[in-house]
Each structure stands twice: as C-alpha cells, then as structure tokens.
Computed example of a mutant assay.
Amino acid sequence: MVKEIERYGLPIVHMATITTISQSVGANRIVPTVAIPHPVGNPSLPHEEEMDLRRKLVKKALDALQTEVSEPTQFE
C-alpha cells in the first residue's frame, strides 16, 4: 500500500520495528521504531522521557518526508 500511495505523488514514511518487512514491501522512507507492542513509545520510561522519545521519532519521520529518495532509505 505504501508504494501505491507514493505512485500518486504523496510521500510516505513507513515507521516500523521490523525494517526488513518495510524494505520487502517497497517502502522508500523507513524509520525504525522501538518495539512491536509499542512502536512509537516505551511505557517503562518516565512520562517526560517517553514524550521526548515520541517527539524524536515523529521529527525523524517528518524529516524523512522532506527528503527526496530514489530507493528504499532507512532513517536512523
């Protein structure tokens, strides 16, 4: 589905814990996340630290959206 949306000219970021799957489905912009049950968070962290982690992941995804890519690219 990621590939199909990009064919219409809409950039997509695939945030995933298992990045090899993202690559196999043809996602062009891949942001690795934390863990399968909590991809964009870590409930074991104190509230402020978790919010900081979430902000960093979302910021990374927004930066990836603004980056021109021609092949699958993982944003660390």
Rank of each mutant, 00 (worst) to 15 (best):
M1P: 06
V2Q: 00
V2K: 02
V2P: 02
K3I: 05
E4A: 14
I5T: 14
I5V: 15
E6P: 06
E6A: 06
E6M: 11
E6R: 12
R7G: 00
R7V: 01
Y8E: 14
Y8V: 01
G9C: 02
G9I: 07
L10P: 00
P11H: 06
P11C: 07
I12Y: 07
I12R: 08
V13W: 01
M15V: 11
M15K: 01
A16G: 10
A16D: 13
T17W: 01
T17I: 02
T17Q: 04
I18K: 10
I18L: 07
T19F: 03
T19V: 14
T19I: 14
T19K: 05
T20W: 01
T20D: 12
T20S: 14
I21E: 14
I21T: 12
S22H: 10
S22I: 12
Q23F: 07
S24L: 13
S24M: 08
V25A: 00
V25I: 15
V25C: 06
V25D: 05
G26E: 05
A27V: 13
R29F: 06
I30L: 04
I30M: 01
V31N: 07
P32M: 09
P32G: 10
T33L: 12
V34F: 09
V34I: 14
I36N: 07
P37M: 08
H38E: 13
P39W: 03
V40R: 00
G41S: 15
G41R: 08
G41P: 02
N42K: 08
P43V: 06
P43M: 02
P43E: 07
S44W: 09
S44M: 08
S44P: 03
P46V: 09
P46A: 14
H47D: 05
H47E: 09
E48V: 02
E49T: 11
E50C: 03
E50Q: 12
M51Y: 04
M51C: 06
M51G: 00
D52I: 04
D52P: 00
D52Y: 04
D52T: 11
L53N: 04
L53V: 02
L53R: 04
L53I: 00
L53E: 06
L53F: 02
R54G: 12
R54T: 15
R54M: 13
K56Y: 06
K56P: 05
L57P: 13
V58Y: 15
K59Y: 03
K59N: 10
K60A: 10
L62E: 09
D63K: 13
A64W: 01
L65G: 06
L65Y: 09
Q66L: 08
Q66M: 06
T67M: 10
E68T: 11
V69C: 09
V69T: 13
V69F: 10
S70G: 15
E71W: 12
E71S: 14
E71R: 15
P72R: 10
P72Y: 12
P72K: 12
T73R: 10
T73D: 11
T73Y: 07
Q74K: 15
Q74L: 15
Q74F: 03
F75P: 04
E76Y: 07
E76F: 03
